[in-house]
Design a protein around this nucleic acid. Structure first.
Lengths: 153, 153
DNA sequence: GCGCAGTTGCAACAACGTTGCATCAGAGGG
DNA sequence: CCCTCTGATGCAACGTTGTTGCAACTGCGC
């Protein structure tokens, strides 16, 4: 067994997604339901490509997925980070604690997955005179627990 | 006057670039000399596009600049970071202290420039069990001193 | 000055994401 | 239950950034 920094939320199955979607003033469409469920069940941050593959059977258009993902970020259902391979990755924002907290990310060089390390909060350090910081990104690259174990075996 | 986190190295004019280039086993070509000088004189991290514009008069090929920039990173003359707008930015690696030290970066939302905060070292935090980190990226987004002053005026 | 391996320029390609627009459908009102 | 309106979707075309293959060129050691 390996420690997952972001266990899949046990509440996932019982979340009333349509209600949550309407609560932010949007329509509960199949594309939004599907994307939110995929994000919630992933356990790590997904790229547009990941989502597209996960929902290949549904046949949503590429553009629709881009738009739904951006909408999810705007609506606070997800957060968006730029990955080292120049793609956006989308992670589920906490369901329990809606106000999204800035946290560190971990990118595994072996499997390419990006994990949200929600237990590692980040804060802006002291900046040079005149500089003012708003948001902070913190990403550690290395090897995740699963890949570390796979290699040892 | 505003505080620049990365003042242009005073040694820039007197650096013997051809010798430094040959020292890493490469040829001192016009493209490499030009790119290294641009990086050294910039004071902040430049995108491929920035370099292309700075050297527009020289007429180097796009691909050549991509290759020279990558070569500069491999040879330790520069470091490469991914920016929020999905472009690579290249910063001059310290001339005085060749072993490149990991440092934080600052991205100004107003002017789009990315500064190297070499005075702010970064270190990997405690990770979940099984995870091992190698490199760390730390980027603060906000407003730089120059833009802060411009707005006040 | 010669020659070779490292560089460059050109063209084509690939990946990721965006925009415009016509069509469709969720959700509230009758 | 049906209507309607506006938000959402699908499609096609496009833009930007970066990569690859290959022939031609040139820095630099001899």
């Amino acid at each position: 067994m390996w420690s997952n920094p972001r266990m899949t939320d046990n509440q996932t199955d019982t979340v009333d997604w349509p209600a949550k979607i309407r609560a932010v003033g949007a329509r509960a469409t199949p594309a939004r339901l599907a994307v939110l469920q995929v994000l919630a069940g992933a356990g790590h941050a997904l790229s547009h490509h990941d989502v597209e593959q996960a929902l290949a059977a549904e046949g949503f258009d590429r553009v629709t997925l881009y738009r739904v993902l951006d909408w999810a970020v705007e609506s606070g259902f997800a957060h968006k980070i730029i990955d080292a391979d120049r793609v956006w990755r989308f992670g589920q924002a906490s369901i329990a604690a809606p106000p999204h907290r800035e946290h560190a990310h971990f990118r595994c060089e072996a499997c390419g997955k990006v994990f949200c390390l929600e237990d590692i909060p980040v804060q802006a350090p002291a900046l040079p005179a005149g500089f003012s910081g708003k948001t902070v990104e913190f990403c550690i690259t290395g090897q995740c627990a699963r890949c570390d174990q796979d290699i040892k075996e």
